[in-house]
């Protein structure tokens, strides 16, 4: 008896066609997503490592992010701040050469924003970094996660149970939870944070 698998395969052809199209769509979708949406840990123009700076060398966060205690935004350090140290330190490394080329061309470094909040949210670093917050034991890491262990910054938020959630942006419940815990004055009024 002559047995062939060809008729069986032929019957599967529509299914294979549909499956193949779906798979192709998946690939295209993944590629488009990876290309146009930076995701939770985008590649930066310079491979700056928080692990080396904040972790190994134990530079305080606010040595570079000087605006955190003074304004709404924590701010990205100016190129001159970087050059201030790297004029002397590790000058031969390729990433530092890249930094110096920005410096010599008098251009800012086009860093990509990782931690971003919607337009309708008012969040001020100043109030959260101020003396009251430090007295309550709130460190930068309380919200931003273990930055000193990250080579490339990744979106991190804090879950209600206090653990860190990687790749999860901040949600309102997390803010409210902390405001309730620390009994912030009018901390649950909408107009405290929404503008």
């Amino acid at each position: 008896m002559n047995v062939s698998i060809v008729p069986g395969l032929r019957a599967l052809r529509p299914a294979a066609l549909v499956g193949g199209t779906l798979f192709l769509g998946l690939l295209v979708g993944y590629w488009a997503n990876a290309t146009w949406y930076p995701g939770t840990s985008p590649e930066q123009p310079i491979e700056f490592s928080h692990r080396i700076h904040a972790g190994e060398n134990e530079i305080p966060c606010m040595y570079c992010h000087t605006q955190a205690r003074r304004s709404i935004s924590a701010g990205v350090p100016s190129v001159s701040k970087c050059v201030g140290c790297h004029k002397e330190i590790a000058t031969e490394r390729p990433q530092i050469r890249k930094l110096m080329s920005y410096w010599q061309n008098e251009e800012p470094i086009p860093w990509i924003k990782v931690h971003d909040l919607p337009d309708f949210v008012h969040f001020t670093h100043k109030r959260h970094v101020s003396a009251y917050a430090r007295a309550a034991g709130i460190e930068c890491q309380t919200c931003h996660g273990p930055v000193e262990t990250m080579d490339r910054i990744r979106v991190t938020s804090r879950a209600i149970d206090g653990s860190f959630q990687l790749d999860t942006p901040w949600e309102m419940g997390l803010c409210l939870n902390c405001h309730r815990q620390h009994q912030v004055e009018h901390g649950t009024d909408c107009w405290t944070c929404h503008k």
Partner: peptide
Amino acid sequence: NQDGLNTQIYN
């Protein structure tokens, strides 16, 4: 709200 303001929360 507690400040006697009539709020409008856009989101």
